[in-house]
Write a protein that binds this DNA or RNA. Structure first.
Length: 489
RNA sequence: GGCCCGUUGGUCAAGCGGUUAAGACUCCGGCCUUUCACGCCGGCAACACGGGUUCGAGUCCCGUACGGGUCACCA
């Protein structure tokens, strides 16, 4: 197969939770590897300051929950390890030394103050604030001297003074930049850690990555990476730079926004598969009219050239809809177990048939977190407004409601508690409706309001009465009756 | 500001020189119906602008506008 020796990687840095932009990048890398390729997890923990230990677990958990299984990684091993950058320091050192020896990199002893001062000068002159290459021309003696004096230093890449560099991106095509616009970027930091800019090149090469998939924030650095690959004489991998997921037209999905995090979405009652499906579509389309895809289907259909070039805005409404589609597609049993924790937040009574309740809820739920507010009337009858008895369409009003309730009460009363089922209620109440020669709604609307005290409910009066049971239903009807009477109706 | 990139309805998007410019979400009607929801039917709504190239341009080229990315010893 064409995808046989594809190797892709997801290379997060453990600095916080996974927002959906990150997850989408992981998903694309996973999909790009296909069935026969290899998807690798590599941890980029070279920034000591921003390292958050718990973030590692979040990465593992999220990828596991979403089914983005990796074949090589810190925990599962592989032939290209270690897969944690902080464990590869000697490797980076070796290659940095090689670059210095070749003259493609050099030691820079400039301190923060010098750097800042020089940046100000550059800026004042209207130039980009790049390194002024002060240490590029240090003589061997000067270097030796500073080294001997124990001065701290960083290693910088020596960018060619002239010429231009062209990178090829799978979706953006060829991009050429003048070398003169490139910065002599730091490769090895003062603390001995490599920068991302260096480590990603070394690791991607050593790990035989064939397609580098990452965000467009790296697009403008890519020429410098190419120069590095060339300096080493390494083949340049394919690049796929994904445009960002936006919160609105001008700002990226921010980490401050709770909705942006995968875990938050799950906590709110979004289904993992639905989230994955939705974010896949944010910047990728296989072209047809289908938009509900399983991971397996996506894997078969995914083509890196179908990834879009422009940023896309995260639309919570569309996510809701897709989540609703997934919820409705669940088997009743699966919906029951998914919904149960949310149902129990609102229903603590022990006498409610939760299976029946869930059956009512399934087509009425787009996000599981919205279940409690739908069924808050079950535990206790709300203090509702009597105007709820008015419905123009149902031809009922607070005036007509008492008669309806008085008529239906004996019908319910006559049903044995153990036979208080929706079927029995339906047939007996319909018989009443027929006897009275009124519209269904004339009887059923008042019933629904009386037993629920809500304007909208999952299920009608019959279903809710059956759910609450005979005793509670009659009690709620009596409550309605006495309240209506007291109000003078 | 320099460099790079992008621009089809409010949103996600199909389109790859000739189409009545798909589809989905949202919104609005209608049907179904014991409320709501589901389901079904229908509707509103787009090629940023200006020049070229071409018999013909959403599709190709140039410019403008707008938007994004980047310019760290962060990734």
């Amino acid at each position: 197969m064409a995808k046989a020796n594809i190797r892709t990687r997801f290379a997060p840095s453990p600095t916080g939770y996974m927002h959906v932009g990150n997850l989408r990048t992981a998903l694309y890398a996973y999909l790009a590897a296909g069935d026969n390729g290899t998807f690798i997890l590599r941890i980029e923990d070279t920034d000591q300051g921003r390292y958050v230990p718990e973030a590692l677990d979040i990465i593992y958990e999220t990828l596991k929950e979403t089914g983005l299984h990796w074949q090589e990684g810190p925990d599962v091993g592989g032939d290209y390890g270690p897969y944690i950058q902080s464990q590869r320091l000697d490797i980076y050192k070796k290659y940095a030394d090689q670059l210095i020896e070749q003259g493609d990199a050099y030691r820079c002893f400039c301190d923060k103050e010098r750097l800042e001062a020089s940046r100000l000068v550059q800026k004042a002159a209207g130039n980009p604030a790049s390194y002024d290459r002060h240490c590029r021309s240090l003589s061997a003696e000067e270097i030796e001297e500073k080294l001997k004096a124990g001065l701290p230093y960083v290693v910088r890449q020596r960018i060619p003074d002239t010429g231009s560099t062209t990178i090829t991106d799978e979706i953006f095509g060829d991009i050429t930049v003048e070398n003169s616009t490139l910065d002599d970027q730091v490769l090895i930091k003062q603390d001995g850690m490599p920068t991302y800019n260096f480590a990603n090149v070394v690791d991607d090469h050593l790990m035989d990555i064939t397609i580098v998939i990452r965000g467009t924030e790296y697009l403008s650095s890519a020429p410098k990476y190419n120069l590095l690959y060339e300096a080493f004489g390494w083949p340049i991998p394919k690049y796929l730079h994904c445009p960002p997921v936006m919160k609105d037209s001008s700002s990226k999905l921010s980490k401050r926004n709770g909705d942006a995090s995968y875990q938050d979405l799950i906590a709110k009652g979004y289904l993992s598969d639905a989230v994955l499906n939705y974010i896949a579509l944010l910047g990728w389309s296989p072209g047809g009219e289908q938009e509900i895809f399983s991971l397996e289907e996506m894997k078969k259909l995914f083509n890196i050239h179908d990834v879009s070039k422009s940023p896309s805005i995260f639309d919570p409404a569309k996510l809701r809809h897709i989540n609703g589609v997934y919820i409705r597609a669940l088997s009743p049993e699966d919906f029951y177990s998914a919904a149960l924790p949310f149902v129990k937040q609102a229903v603590t009574r022990q006498d409610i048939d939760l299976k029946a309740l869930c059956a009512l809820l399934q087509t009425r739920t787009e996000v599981l977190g919205e279940i409690p507010e739908q069924i808050d009337f079950i535990n206790a009858l709300p203090d509702y407004d009597l105007s709820l008895f008015a419905s123009k369409k149902m031809k009922t009003s607070p005036e007509t409601a008492p008669d309806a309730l008085r008529a239906l009460r004996p019908v319910l009363e006559a049903i044995p508690a153990e036979a208080f089922t929706p079927e029995r209620l339906h047939s007996d109440l319909m018989a009443l409706v027929a006897r009275l020669g009124v519209k269904n709604g004339t009887i059923l609307w008042p019933l629904r309001v009386a037993v629920s005290g809500k304007q909208f409910t999952p299920g009608g009066g019959i279903e809710i009465a059956a759910l609450l049971g005979k005793q509670d239903s009659l009690a709620r009807i009596d409550t309605a009756l006495s309240r209506l009477e007291q109000a003078g109706y």
